[in-house]
Amino acid sequence: MDVLLAILSQFGLYGLLTLGVAIIFAALRVVNLAQGDLAMTGAYVAVTATTVAFGWRVLLALALCVLPLLAIERVLLRRPLADGLATMLVTWGVGMALRQGAELLFTSTSRTVAAPAGGTVELLGTPYPAYRLVSGLVAVAVIAGVLLVAYRTGWGLTMRAVADNPTMAALLGTDPRRMRSAAFVIGGMLAVLAGALYSPLLAVNPTMGFGLLVPMFFALLFSRPGALGTAVTAALLVAALAVLLRTWLTDTLADALFYIVIIGTAALRSRSHVRRLLSWSRRILSPARSS
């Protein structure tokens, strides 16, 4: 039970970040390396705006980030359109600037936020921190909501169409540029939400986003480009792997093993016969699709 709750909590964090970065990747074909730093800015809003209730602070963070995100996409990510890697480097620069800006503004000292729902709740006999549960559930709800929008509404369909084939989508009357802006803002907002929502669990400091980048990156690379569902699944797997290893082993050993498993999986996945095996097993598991 404890383990499941731990996975829920970690998945909420990684899931929000990965989903955001996957949306951005789908529309812009760019890995947003500033994603962790966007989460950091969200957390700082939650830390600084202490005059209003926590829930409002999270919403405030989301509202405040819309315009800057739009500006970043419009001003900085438009020009090197031709080269995806150059754009990726721009996001790296943006992240670096955000980190350094936060350090100059708030100093490098870590801060915390009091959890809005203190105390513990009883879950099947085990006490569990109330806010940890709330944040995990809210995160999962948001992830589910975003997926629902992406797969069940016309807007989501258009978005995925743009991701699949921008030129085609443009011919069919969707403005891919507006879609790119929207995707970047939404993806960035998910990161800001993750940072603000999880701020009571974390130490808030300028470099906090850096540590979140690696698991998010792993999850993104294990997902299929443009397929948001697989990104969320990959985030779940990465979270589960990290939590399970750390539950069974000491942290140091778990950490090393985590990387070994990730590297091993990447190595195996790129072998064509393993890929084929995977696709067969998928076919066996879902025979309906093969007809």
Binding site: L76, R79, P80, A82, D83, A86, L89, V90, W92, G93, V94, M96, A97, Q100, G101, L104
Partner: peptide
């Protein structure tokens, strides 16, 4: 400020001279 300046310069350079 040096680090911040470097970040800004970097973003600018990647934009202008990829």
């Amino acid at each position: 400020w040096y680090v911040l300046g470097l970040a800004a310069l970097f973003v600018l350079l990647v934009q202008v001279v990829p």
